[in-house]
Design a protein around this nucleic acid. Structure first.
Lengths: 206, 206, 206, 206
DNA sequence: CATGAATGAGCATTCATTCAT
DNA sequence: GATGAATGAATGCTCATTCAT
């Protein structure tokens, strides 16, 4: 988790290429060329292409938990905290969308010898925090109880990725002319939609 | 769209392997071996590995629209029809989950020379039908109007895939011991969750 | 040597493609497609790709000798007969230039299992006839004696092919705008050049 | 044009095999085996099989012009210079006969994506020098004027290759028992024949 | 007699990785 | 510590040919 400048350079290029053309589709030569380093560098620094992906996971996934906790400790009404939580999740996923896209595809690939423990742990912790928060809200009568609490995260992240993974389709459907407009939509309207979705599920009508 | 027995055999094996170990990760030799056909067969039948994927898209994606319409024409109250619609979508996606997983990953890969027109068209049509149904419900005062109608599909399918793509994680989280239990959960509890999610978003309180 | 219509069709296409893109470079599929016959047809009719080439040799090379003899029996002065002979050789080679180009390349290929006997026999006979004619002229004092008689044929045919094999180069060098202009040049100016060359070698000054 | 030892080793083996069994007929595996290098080496060093051929052209064809000029600047009578010129051409062609044989076959193959510019330029320059020399001799009244000057080179090289390309035939015809005898004949009697041919064409009788 | 389907062998190339320097 | 050179293995694909019909 202590990467030098060149290693970070490689990690960033790898993240981009893995997300764009897939892990298998990306050759270490391509990464090396784009990162302007020697081909042997990657094996030398990370051990192997698979270990490079593992390093990327550690690099990107590591500090997710803490951010969540900073929201949780804030003294806010449940509803507002819920919005903040969803917003944070979307923002965080959006920032690391490339790495998460790779994970979404590679995690179930049993042939691969990649250690996803860091990812799983982070996911477990995050969902745990959310679950606790929802439970608390339910206990306080703010949130409904007849919901699949464990699936809330899936709806948040799933909605995001369904749009992100079909970017060309949604750009056309939503009449977003540029990548910037799409990006902006993800962080505003889409986020609102997800917040609204989660609130609809959890909140009792006044 | 007129595939003989051996072609279908190849398509099914390809679908499985593409979904499990990725398009790039799957070699035609692997497909050939698993499908118990000669390697040259694949080029002979489909032209190339990429064309094989295109054939798979046509094979799997083709008849989606009609199913939706059979639900739409039924004379049901809006709420029940909404549930039926979501159920159909999840069922359909579940049946072709492997192909859709490949699409989710490959669709944005611009390096690939694959014709996704059939997929895009199907997606557009499906979302169009749903949108029209929602509009109708809104006009009749059954559905809320302050929703991102165009994003409803993303929430349905996205939630499904977020769970499916993290199967080992959710199996553990949801304490599902076997693949059958997981499969069953997807078609019952998860479907319910998605139905509930969409209904929460759309329905005015009674 | 008794080829039916379809076989001749195949032979002609094969001759064209072999000359244009080489024997190895031409696939039987390509020939079959161009000749509008089934792929299996070629093996079926000729036995193999190599046997197809052999058949082509027989088809094209077979009747060369007789034409030479029709010139030889004419009652002409030696000089005129020499011109007629060269002209006939060039014309004949030109007509079958494609097959002869293949031979020029493949004859020394020892890996190939092709029977060039017909070609060799024809070549031997032709050169024999020419040699006899030159000998006769020498005996009669019309032709010089200090010439390498056995090499005369090589100069005739070699000059032709050196131009033919470098067609794009010579088209530019000789400012021949079209294939027709080049073709015409081969049968007029180039033929004259070769006639002049041979006459210079053989004839005593008047 | 700066090849290391191993690259030259590959080039020489490739030249031999290309000439013997053709460009298409020669596999990179065959070259690699014969040159005792790894198969990947060829792509690694030259990029591709076609680029290997291009490298061969550059390697062999590069310094032709200069040699011609060294003859031209010599202070010799036109007749002797003519002999020296032909002798040099034959020698040079003989030394690079393998590469030139490949060129003779591949140059007109339009399917191939090979850059023959170096060859064409060299050929143009060589013929240019010869043409200038002949013009000079014509101006000085030493050479005849009614000759196709631009075709002289074709006769020189064409005659050589017609014999070389039919080596087995001419070995038998000329009763040359060994390869050495054939080789020797090419550089003595055949060269004389070509010199005599060109002189007959150009020189006025005394 | 003719052919579509099928195949094993071979193709050029690219791969991630290693290793001597 | 860093790297250019090198490699065995694997890639997708095309080949000439065979064979059941």
């Amino acid at each position: 988790m202590d990467f030098n400048e060149k290693q970070i350079q490689i990690l960033k290029v790898a993240e981009k290429l893995f997300a764009e053309i897939g892990f298998d589709g990306t050759s270490v030569r391509h990464i090396a060329k784009e990162a302007d380093v020697n081909v042997a560098m990657i094996s030398y620094y990370f051990g192997s292409k698979e270990k490079l992906l593992e390093a990327l996971l550690l690099y990107r996934v590591a500090d997710f938990k803490m951010e969540l906790e900073t929201v949780m400790v804030q003294n806010l009404p449940h509803v507002e905290k819920l919005d903040a939580l969803v917003s944070l999740m979307v923002n965080r996923i959006h920032r690391n969308r490339r790495t998460h896209k790779i994970i979404n595809y590679e995690y179930t690939n049993t042939c691969r010898q990649i250690d996803f423990d860091a990812y799983v742990e982070q996911k477990r912790d995050s969902l745990g925090i959310i679950e606790a928060f929802v439970k608390d809200g339910q206990n306080k009568g703010v949130f409904k109880t007849d919901v699949h609490t464990k699936l809330l995260g899936a709806t948040v992240i799933g909605t995001y990725f369904q749009v992100y993974n079909n970017k060309p389709f949604y750009k056309k459907l939503l009449e977003l002319d540029s990548d910037e407009a799409f990006e902006n939509y993800m962080l505003t309207s889409l986020t609102q939609h997800i917040q609204q979705t989660i609130k609809s599920l959890l909140l009792n009508e006044k």
